[in-house]
Nucleic acid binder design. Structure first.
Length: 247
RNA sequence: GCUGGAAUCGUCUAGUGGCAAUGACAAGAGACUGUAAAUCUCUCGGCUUCGGCCUUCGUAGGUUCGAGUCCUACUUCCAGCA
């Protein structure tokens, strides 16, 4: 299939980005670039709910587990990485899809941030800049999102997470940026007996909820996002591609 | 039943005569172009012509210019004795 825009699928944590994007990619010959500032790190796949090889279902994924947690990896690094991958995917005749919840990363890409000491980009350029991107946000009501976060916590707090946490604790310093404020601190607190499983989950759900709110605040300023309920995302994307084809 | 202690914003909490009342959490809004799942800011009794006004600290009285703070009774809860 041909489509010259890059598809961007964003949304807060637990909004269902991973699932839909893989479904869409399978249908359109898409390849996925993760825009997730934590899934970037190696050894944090379980805790960041990154898709496993099986879940990826043969769809190529980029940007997951590409640096060690104690390595410095900035927005600028990510932007460059994403741009390179987009060019490569396109050269192969496939459709690039950027999927994630890190607003800064996505804006850096679609608004073409320049990382210099100079002033901010002129806001008036914004609409024009992202003409090359089809940006879709997954919309949930606060209640629904909270429920999803809670349910996901139940799926996340299992043996695999504890194993991963122990490995991370053993290998890296708690003070690295990568380890800051994520599920591992709660998993570790539970493993250390600071609180029971129920409390650990509760703390994580609250933390994740706060994250979701901040993500949403960030996304709000991007007026070019097409917000859709999860169930409508796939058909919308397919329709956009068909319309493009018809020209 | 007797004797102590306690009742303050959604929750916990500070407050021993000048208080719309401390702090934390939760909640809400927002900022953010170099580790962003980070970091930071604002609001948080009601109304306001932003000067203020009104209603609040278990309930009802009392003392006082003034009471969340002192006194009396009552209600509820906790602890000890029975």
């Amino acid at each position: 299939m041909k489509f010259d825009k890059t598809i961007v699928i964003l949304g807060p944590t637990a909004s269902g980005k991973t699932g839909v994007s893989i479904e869409i990619a399978k249908k359109i010959g898409g390849e996925i670039i993760s825009a997730d500032s934590r899934a970037i790190y190696q050894g944090m796949e379980i805790g960041t709910a990154a898709p496993s090889i099986e879940e990826q279902a043969g769809v190529p994924h980029y940007g997951i587990g590409i640096v060690h947690p104690d390595q410095r990896f900035t927005v600028a690094d990510w932007k460059q990485f994403a741009e390179t991958k987009i060019a490569e995917i396109r050269a192969r005749g496939k459709i690039p899809m950027v999927v994630g919840g890190t607003g800064l990363y996505i804006d850096a890409l679609i608004y073409d941030y320049h990382f210099t000491d100079e002033k901010k980009l002129d806001q008036s350029d914004r609409t024009e800049m992202c003409a090359n991107y089809l940006t879709i946000g997954i919309k949930w009501s606060p209640e629904q999102l909270r429920e999803r976060i809670t349910q996901r916590a139940d799926k996340l707090f299992v043996q695999d997470l504890y194993t991963e946490t122990e490995k991370l604790v053993e290998q890296y310093n708690w003070n690295t940026q990568a380890m800051k404020s994520n599920i591992y601190q709660f998993a570790w607190g539970y493993l250390q007996g600071e609180y029971n499983l129920e409390e650990a989950k509760k703390l994580f759900v609250l933390d994740d909820w706060h994250l979701a709110k901040r993500q949403l605040t960030w996304f709000k300023r991007n007026k070019n996002i097409k917000w859709l309920p999860l169930a409508e995302v796939e058909s919308y994307v397919l329709k956009c591609i068909q319309d493009e084809q018809g020209r």
